Computed example of a mutant assay.
Amino acid sequence: MSRLLEQPALIEQLQQNLSFQTRTRSADAAVLIAITQEQNPQILLTRRAAQMRTHGGEVSFPGGKREKSDTSNIVVALREAHEETALNPYDVSLLGELPMQKARSGMLVKPIVGLIQPEISLIPEPSEIDRIFYMPLQEFMLSTPQAYHVKYAEQSLYFPSIQFDNEVVWGLTARILVSLLQRGLGYHKEWPFLLNPPR
């Protein structure tokens, strides 16, 4: 793992490679990829409350839908992160954005990337979030995708995933992380759309 931290370090690479476009399309929703500013950077993740109507119990980034009063994708991401985790927007040092992603619902989601200090105090909003946790960025970089079984109607599908700290990272969250590696670190990670069922 030490080679990944050689010149420049991961945080420095992200700072060099990420930026905001001068003109950005307004997304239906936005998420915040908050990364701790330390030698072994960690990514802030949440587990959505089980009772949520959509994606209940799934691992996600803090974020949510645009409201009429939101003036930009950045505002959406920071507001939602504050509502879900009590993260103060002024404690986030913005780095840039990632390409728009399409959720299963068809919504267009804009990922916003920022740095936060390690050990920052966060509080989950219980109506939306069951858990806040951190995953080292290198953990995702070096992981091998595992098949995760999801049943849609009468169809069984196996999506690539990684298991970390008793949580499963897959779907849109995993695709955004793959995009972060590619755009922010120039690191290509193989991440197929589907995997064959495990034997």
Rank of each mutant, 00 (worst) to 15 (best):
R3K: 07
L5H: 15
E6L: 11
Q7V: 01
Q7H: 05
P8C: 07
I11G: 05
Q13C: 09
Q15T: 06
Q16T: 08
N17V: 04
N17Y: 08
R23P: 00
R25Y: 05
A27L: 04
A27G: 05
D28C: 01
A29C: 06
I33V: 15
I35E: 04
T36C: 08
Q37P: 00
N40L: 11
I43S: 12
R47L: 03
R48K: 13
A50S: 13
S60G: 01
F61W: 02
F61C: 02
P62W: 10
P62G: 07
G64F: 07
N73D: 08
V76S: 07
V76H: 12
V76Q: 11
E84A: 01
E84Y: 05
E84I: 03
S93K: 12
E97L: 00
L98H: 05
M100L: 09
R104H: 08
R104I: 11
G106A: 01
M107W: 06
M107F: 07
V109K: 00
K110A: 13
P111Y: 11
P111L: 09
I112F: 08
V113R: 00
P118W: 10
I120C: 05
I120T: 10
S121K: 12
P124D: 01
E125A: 12
P126N: 08
I129M: 03
F133Q: 00
Y134H: 08
F140R: 01
F140I: 07
F140D: 01
S143K: 15
T144N: 10
T144R: 14
P145Y: 14
Q146T: 14
A147I: 10
H149K: 15
Y152K: 13
Q155E: 14
Q163D: 10
D165K: 14
N166H: 15
E167M: 04
E167K: 13
V168Y: 11
L172I: 15
T173K: 05
S179L: 06
R183K: 14
R183S: 11
G186Y: 05
Y187K: 09
H188I: 06
P192M: 09
L194Y: 14
N196C: 12
P197E: 07
